[in-house]
Design a protein around this nucleic acid. Structure first.
Length: 308
DNA sequence: ACGTAAATAT
DNA sequence: CATATTTACG
């Protein structure tokens, strides 16, 4: 925490040959007009006083630079991470199941769930650790807490796909993928599982170059199939087109029905009896993205992280 | 550590 | 019931 960063040549870093990558990044960032001026405090003075919150030390360019410095240094670490692995996602979206509600007469238990969605980048970490007692993931003493179901949000999935594409469908194995994705709390099992489904999806896609989307491939369908399918030999490398952007507060409420992100179902594109036809074909992506932009607010608590 | 199939959860 | 994610196994 106490790492002091001196900003010095950081300017030079940014100023130098910014290639497309930077441009792409910028394209996804909020326009300047959308941003709140640094000088403006997030908490109104009165409010701050009322709650005896020390008024923020008026953010300045310095703070920004410092944050950037942090980011840069982590980006530039000469480890093995390709440049495209930008910002670590700290909290994979996760669903917290309710255990304390034996309401289910059969096994249909359904009730309030809280969705945890990912944060990312520098300042996000300030939102951690609410006094919420539900998230005992960092508390070793609590062993009763199961890991909440991981929710593969479009963003996570995107990241996943990008990484897989980058690795090449061949060498993309769970462990590597995990590393490259660099998402905190993401387990190998999580990835393995997703990879399994993803492969199925890919296969089925190949087989049916004639068919339109089978109505159940929504999530995946919305993310283009990486063209690195040729299992030639050398590389399956893809330049990896998109840096991971930081989208505005990914608070989502999945409160309504369950919108699945359709992955491939192993079995039938067959004519047979398909139920959710008229109602299914929703790209979870679109809905979510819309939600995010029109997002009113949501009380989302993010838990710090899950220890391995 | 991987991949696949069966089991649960939603 | 279908799909998503987890768990069990070879």
């Amino acid at each position: 925490m106490g790492e002091e960063v001196q900003m010095n040549d950081y300017e030079g870093e940014l100023g130098r040959g910014d290639d497309d990558r930077v441009l792409e990044w910028e394209s996804g960032l909020p326009s300047a007009s959308d941003l709140m001026p640094l000088s403006q405090s997030l908490i109104p003075p009165e409010l701050a006083l009322a709650f005896s919150i020390s008024p923020e030390p008026c953010q300045s360019m310095f703070d920004v630079n410092r944050a950037s410095q942090n980011t840069l240094s982590s980006l530039c670490r000469p480890s093995q991470l390709p440049s495209f692995v930008e910002d670590p996602i700290h909290d994979p979206s996760v669903v917290e199941g309710n255990e304390n509600d034996p309401e289910s007469t059969t096994k249909d238990g359904s009730d309030a769930r809280k969705i945890r969605r990912l944060h990312s980048t520098e300042e996000a970490d300030s939102s951690l650790r609410t006094e919420n007692s539900n998230n005992n993931y960092d508390d070793p003493s609590v062993r009763t807490s199961k890991r909440p179901r991981l929710v593969w949000t479009p963003q996570l999935h995107k990241r996943f796909v990008d990484v897989v594409a980058h690795l090449g469908i061949k060498s993309a194995v769970p462990k590597t993928i995990i590393q490259l994705m660099n998402v905190e709390g993401l387990t190998r099992e999580n990835v393995a599982s997703h990879l399994q489904k993803y492969r199925l999806y890919l296969n089925r896609m190949q087989g049916l170059i004639n068919e339109g989307p089978s109505s159940s491939d929504n999530l995946f369908a919305s993310t283009p199939v990486p063209q690195s399918f040729h299992e030639s030999d050398a590389n399956g490398h893809m330049p990896l087109p998109t840096p991971y952007l930081v989208l505005p507060v990914p608070v989502l409420d999945v409160a309504h029905g369950h919108r699945h992100m359709g992955m491939p179902v192993p079995n039938p594109p067959a004519p047979a009896t398909y139920h959710g036809f008229g109602s299914h074909p929703y790209s979870m992506f679109q809905e979510q993205q819309r939600d995010w932009s029109t997002n009113k607010f949501g009380s989302v608590l993010s838990y710090p992280h899950i220890g391995p």
